[in-house]
Amino acid sequence: MNAGVLRFKKAGIILFWLLIWQAASTAVHNSIILVGPLDVILALLNQIRLADFWKTIGFSFGKISLGFLSAFAAGILAGGAACRYPIIGDFLSPLMALMKSVPVASFVILALIWAGSENLSVIIGFLVVFPIIYIQTIAGIKSTDRQLLEMADVFKMSEAKRFFYLYRPALLPYLASGCRVALGMSWKSGIAAEVIGVPLHSIGEKLYLSKIYLNTADLFAWTLVIILLSALLESFFLWLLSLASPGIRQKKKEVG
């Protein structure tokens, strides 16, 4: 099946579900319980014209991205340190178990008490993403080919060369798969935190207001915005990671 037919098939499937959605909303005939896709698009178009819409997007996107990026950097550093010095891994182990098992809602309430609502999504994004990246980093480093490491010992390769040529290619697929999970999680938990903490000019606040005013169209419109922003950040970040993959120049040459 060629690409054009595949795209056509995909578009047809999406259109089918949109029609089902529109038919269901028409049948329900209650804009509080279920709005149709046309109402959602209208609500979104109404929002897009407002400066507050872009300010809200900027706020939540910035905070959640900051939480994700800081956790990404910290997770790699901590994972690398834990592989180099196992004692660090031993010390971090209970902390990781705690971060993985404590419900996000508990963290949200604690973060609200300790830091207020302004940076809530940064903190929650960090707490959710950090253990994922930490675990993936350790798994990636441990997957490095042992025979290549012996080769590096025999040829007395420097630490920098070992990282660049041996660890990096082993690590990147693990980081990419970790990022796919972590990015979605950071958005879900970050927005959930904003709904609980209701920081001003956040997407969470807008969702909260939609609930208060029973404005289902706005709720759906903001949900659509969240999905788009999450997909955008994921595509951009995975593209950045792919640039760090070995062989990218060769692939480009082959394509060119």
Partner: peptide
């Protein structure tokens, strides 16, 4: 000491 291992032990993603 330098070596050619029984296996090639090349970094396959690199030229």
């Amino acid at each position: 000491i330098s070596a050619v291992f029984q296996e090639n032990r090349l970094c396959e993603a690199f030229t």
